[in-house]
C-alpha cells in the first residue's frame, strides 16, 4: 500500500445488489416466495424475541469469567511497607488495575504495529511523524510499568490475568486485527488506534477516581499524569487521522 489514497480508489466491488442486477432480482423473488409461505403473524420482532430469550437463559446460568486473586495484603502476608487495601471489596480496584495493565501492554504492541505501518507508508509519512508514534508506544510501555509498580505496592500480582484484564483482550482483538493487517492504510490503522485511545483515556479517568476514593492519593496523582499523557496521544492520533482522511477525500 503506497498511501491512504490507494484504499479509496474506484473499482469493481462485487458485494452490493447493484453490481448484479439480474441475480439480485432472483434473490428478491426467492425472498418473496418465502414470505408468502410464512404463517400469519410471523414478524422480525417475534423472531428477535426468541433469540433474545435464549440469550437471557444463558446469561442467567452463566458462570463469571473468573476471579481476582487475593493480594498479599488481604491474605495477611503483606511485605513490610506494602500499602493496605481498604474498602469492602478492594478486589475491584485490583481488577481495574490489572485491566489497565493489560490494556497498556496490548497498546504497546498495537503501536508496534502502527509504527511499522507508518514506516512502510511512505506516501503518508510527511503527515504522521513516525518518531512521535514511537514515543506514544514507549509511553504506553511506561504506563504498563507504572501500574505494575502500583500493584506490587498493594501486594497484588501484576502477572495474573484478572477478569477485566481478560476482557480487554477480547475487546481490543478487532483493533489489533485492523492495525496488523498489511492491507490497511495508515488512515485506517489510525482509526483503530483512535478507538484504542478513546477507551484508554476513559480507563485512566476511572482508575484515577477510584484510586482517590480508596485513599491512594499518591497513586491517583501518578494516574493523573498518565491521563494527561493519554490526552496528548488522543489529540495527536485524532489529528493525524482527520488529516489523512481529509487529504484522501481531497477536502484540503
Amino acid at each position: 500500500m503506497r498511501n491512504s489514497t490507494d484504499a479509496t480508489r474506484l473499482g469493481i466491488n462485487r458485494t452490493g445488489l447493484q453490481m448484479s442486477p439480474e441475480h439480485a432480482q432472483e434473490m428478491l423473488e426467492g425472498t418473496q416466495l418465502l414470505e408468502m409461505d410464512m404463517p400469519a403473524g410471523t414478524s422480525d420482532e417475534a423472531d428477535g424475541q426468541a433469540l433474545s430469550a435464549m440469550r437471557q437463559e444463558y446469561i442467567a446460568m452463566a458462570d463469571p469469567l473468573g476471579s481476582v486473586p487475593a493480594p498479599a495484603t488481604l491474605k495477611g502476608a503483606a511485605k513490610s511497607g506494602a500499602k493496605m487495601l481498604t474498602g469492602r471489596r478492594p478486589q475491584v480496584f485490583i481488577d481495574k488495575l490489572s485491566e489497565r495493565l493489560a490494556f497498556e501492554r496490548g497498546g504497546t504492541r498495537l503501536y508496534d504495529a502502527v509504527y511499522a505501518k507508518a514506516l512502510a507508508s511512505k506516501g503518508d509519512i510527511s503527515k504522521v511523524p513516525a518518531e512521535e508514534l514511537l514515543e506514544i508506544r514507549n509511553s504506553e510501555a511506561r504506563h504498563a510499568l507504572l501500574i505494575k509498580e502500583c500493584m506490587e505496592t498493594l501486594g497484588a500480582d501484576p502477572t495474573a490475568q484478572t477478569p477485566c484484564a481478560d476482557l480487554v483482550g477480547v475487546e481490543s482483538a478487532g483493533l489489533l486485527q485492523a492495525v496488523s493487517d498489511p492491507r490497511t492504510t495508515l488512515a485506517q490503522t489510525l482509526h483503530a488506534a483512535l478507538a484504542a485511545e478513546l477507551i484508554d483515556n476513559e480507563g485512566w479517568e476511572d482508575l484515577m477516581t477510584m484510586a482517590r476514593e480508596m485513599g491512594h492519593d499518591d497513586m491517583a496523582n501518578r494516574f493523573k499524569q498518565a491521563l494527561d499523557e493519554e490526552a496528548v496521544h488522543l489529540t495527536k492520533v485524532r489529528n493525524w487521522y482527520t488529516l489523512l482522511t481529509m487529504e484522501t477525500s481531497e477536502l484540503m
Partner: peptide, 15 residues
C-alpha cells in the same frame, strides 16, 4: 519474562 517483555526489559524502544 513474567508479565511479558514489556514489563521487564527494553520497554522503551529506540527509533
Amino acid at each position: 519474562r513474567p508479565g511479558t517483555e514489556v514489563l521487564t526489559r527494553a520497554q522503551v524502544r529506540a527509533a
